[in-house]
Amino acid sequence: MSEHEHAGATRWHRFWNRGGWWKALAVAVVYLVVYEGLGLLLSVPFGHLVDSADILATPESVFFGLALPILLGGIILLLFVWSLGWLREIFGPQPIRGSWWMWIGVALLLIPIALRVVGTNWSAYSVGVALTMLFTGLCIGLAEELVSRGLAVNLLRRAGYGEKAVMLLSSLIFALMHSVNAFTQPLLAVALTVVYTFTFGIMMYLVLRVTGSIIWPMLVHAATDPTTILATGGVDAHGDASGSEGLIALAGDFNSVYVVFAIIAIIFVKGKVFPDRTPSLRKAEVD
Rank of each mutant, 00 (worst) to 15 (best):
V33S: 06
V33L: 14
V34K: 00
L38A: 02
L38P: 05
L41W: 12
L42H: 04
L49M: 14
V50S: 10
D51H: 09
D54P: 02
L56S: 01
A57Y: 00
T58K: 06
E60W: 13
S61I: 06
V62F: 03
L66P: 00
L68F: 11
P69I: 11
L71K: 01
G73Y: 00
I75G: 05
L78Q: 12
L79G: 14
L79W: 06
L79A: 15
F80C: 07
W82Q: 14
S83P: 08
L84A: 10
W86V: 06
L87S: 13
F91S: 10
P93V: 12
P93M: 12
Q94A: 15
P95A: 09
I96G: 00
M102G: 08
W103V: 12
V106L: 14
A107H: 03
A107F: 12
L110Y: 04
P112V: 07
A114I: 14
L115F: 03
L115D: 04
L115Q: 00
R116Y: 11
V117W: 09
V117D: 00
V117F: 05
V118I: 15
V118E: 02
G119M: 07
T120K: 04
Y125Q: 03
A130F: 04
L131P: 13
T132F: 03
F135T: 12
T136Q: 12
C139D: 10
C139Q: 07
G141E: 06
L142N: 06
E144L: 03
L146M: 11
V147T: 11
R149L: 06
L155D: 04
R158Q: 01
G162Q: 08
K164H: 05
A165I: 14
A165T: 15
V166Y: 09
